[in-house]
Design a protein around this nucleic acid. Structure first.
Length: 500
RNA sequence: GGGCCCCUAACUCAACGGUAGAGUAUCGGCCUUUUAAGCCGAGAGUUGUGGGUUCGAAUCCCACGGGGCCCA
């Protein structure tokens, strides 16, 4: 295969040539004193020359015979390097012939400003730090008055998701998304820490799954010879913590749901859940508003947020829309919440339902079709029917409803909260009803009652509010990324059939 | 689960039933302040895979694979 101009063969040949000269193409270390960004920021035209010692990946190269310019990129940004044969000597300069785009190099020298005005490291010493055997699809990037114009960048989404390492190496803006993601998570942690919440870790491997309606991933523990499930939610364990007296508790963790994948769903995703004793869902609406307003200010300043061409203002307070009122406003008859009545309403609105879908599913479907798309600005949907929410407390004013809200943004739910159900008798009845649903074919209902959870509730759980936040989706909104795969470093993909 | 769209050189794209091309990248040559460096020259493809229609298929049809978008 290896014709002489095939990039990978060429690189292997250069590597062999280096080793023949006694140059280690993968040295153990190279002391770095500076980052590209610091050097550029700290440069002064007057005064003695500023020493510079950097390392980075070669992302562009212009060789002129006895001189060469290249740009190297480190974690902070990129900086130009200027190599002269008369200053480096023939032997050191000949390294230039063995450097390819994508190689890591170390450069020591001093800063100067070129004729065209770019702050540049004039090299006194050059070393190859790691030879790249595989070419990166490096497009050309031109700094144009602060704006980086890029040419011929890889646009193939599959490549970007499957080879995120190359995507990151080639697209600085991809890294920006993940820096923003880290800021979001840091903000959430600080937000809760500052309010006295304790961060905990609960099991990802669970003998009984619960806390949400979803099909689980199933696995097996060999030593115990027992089936275990990857958690679909943290809820039931965090409530156990509240039973134990951790009045304010939270967890940021991966949940796993064995369901379809799309722009808003990845099989493993990051969930924040937090619980506060002696609070109710109304308190948490305030908290949700504070949280999002704070995040928007943290990431963008101000209260404006744009997502995929739509712009909203997140200023408080947000409208509170009662679930059944919203459906009624669309013409749905919600006077009878029995399954037959709802099924006929669904038919009237052209919503197909299957026999195993209960009243809750139908309500959910009607709501998703008729109401959700219109919820562009921040809003709370509140007071859901009890059938939809087996873990929420019955509404103090209307026993058909529960004390629950979902926070919406850009037509999509990003948070879900209840006044938590703490009556162990009511909770048992609802969990047993779920198991019956499972027996009737509902694959999203848990198949056994979590007796240990009920035991915990029987010891007594104070009145408590709880909220779950889909962190990935929140990051999508805050970073204006169109797909959940753009905010997960290594999203789930179908396994590659054949390599290379 | 259903519908629509995409897959051509390493990258970005053209060719839309009649010989598969360009720019970048790569390779060789020249070049001591360039920056999408420049000039001269070269190599590079089982057009995602498999089948079919046709004198002839990247192009039309079918299946499969992968991806994207929309809907359930």
């Amino acid at each position: 295969m290896g014709s002489e101009t095939d990039p990978q063969s060429v690189r292997r040949e250069k590597l062999a040539a280096l080793e023949e000269r006694g140059v280690d193409p993968y040295p153990a270390s190279w002391r770095v004193d500076d980052t590209a960004a610091d050097l550029l920021a700290g440069f002064r035209d007057e005064g003695p020359p500023h020493a510079a010692r950097v390392g980075g990946r070669v992302v562009s190269m212009r060789s002129h015979g006895k001189t060469a310019f290249l740009h190297i990129a480190d974690g902070s940004g990129r900086i130009q390097v200027y190599l002269r044969r008369d200053e480096l000597g023939d032997e050191a300069y000949s390294l230039v012939d063995h450097i390819d785009l994508g190689d890591f190099v170390g450069v020591a020298g001093e800063l100067f400003r070129t004729r065209t005005g770019e702050v540049t490291v004039r090299a006194r010493e050059v070393a190859i730090l790691a030879k790249a055997l595989r070419p990166l699809p490096l497009g050309k990037v031109v700094e144009d008055g602060g704006e980086a114009r890029a040419y011929h960048q890889v646009s193939d989404q599959e490549f970007r998701y499957r080879q995120r390492y190359a995507d990151l190496a080639v697209h600085p803006e991809t890294r920006k998304v993940f820096e923003a993601r880290a800021r979001v998570i840091r903000y959430l942690r600080n937000f809760l820490d500052a309010r006295g919440f304790l961060e905990v870790e609960t099991p990802a491997l669970q003998p009984v799954y619960g806390g949400a309606a979803a099909r689980p991933f199933t696995t097996h523990h060999n030593a115990l010879d027992s089936t275990l499930y990857l958690r679909i939610a943290d809820e039931l364990y965090l409530k156990r913590c509240v039973v134990g007296g951790i009045d304010r508790v939270y967890e940021i963790a991966k949940d796993f749901r064995n369901e379809g994948m799309d722009r808003f769903h990845n099989p493993e995703f990051t969930m924040l859940e937090f619980y506060q004793a002696y609070a109710d869902y109304r308190d948490f609406m305030e908290l949700a508003e504070e949280m999002l307003v704070g995040l928007v200010a943290e990431l963008h300043g101000g209260t404006a947020l744009s997502f995929q061409g739509r712009s909203v203002d997140v200023r408080r307070p947000w409208p509170r829309i009662r679930f059944l009122d919203a459906l009624a406003a669309e013409g749905v008859d919600v006077s009878d919440l029995s399954r037959p009545a709802l099924a006929s309403e669904a038919a009237r609105f052209g919503l197909e339902i299957t026999p195993d879908e209960g009243a809750g599913k139908i309500l959910d479907g009607l709501f998703g079709r008729l109401v959700e798309p219109a919820l562009a600005g921040p809003a709370f949907v509140v007071d859901h029917p009890a059938v939809l929410s087996p873990l929420a407390k019955a509404h103090r004013d209307d026993p058909r409803l529960v004390e629950r809200f979902e926070a919406y943004l850009f037509g999509s739910e990003w948070a879900n909260a209840f006044s938590e159900l703490n009556d162990p008798r009511d909770q048992r009845a609802r969990l047993e009803a779920q198991v019956r649903q499972a027996a009737d074919g509902d694959e999203e209902a848990p198949n056994v009652v979590d007796e240990d959870f009920l035991r915990a509730l029987e010891y007594g759980m104070p009145p408590t509010a709880g909220m779950g936040v889909g962190v990935d989706r929140l990051v999508m909104f805050l970073t204006d990324q169109p797909s959940i795969r753009d905010v997960i470093l290594f999203p789930t993909l179908r396994p590659e059939g054949s390599a290379t």
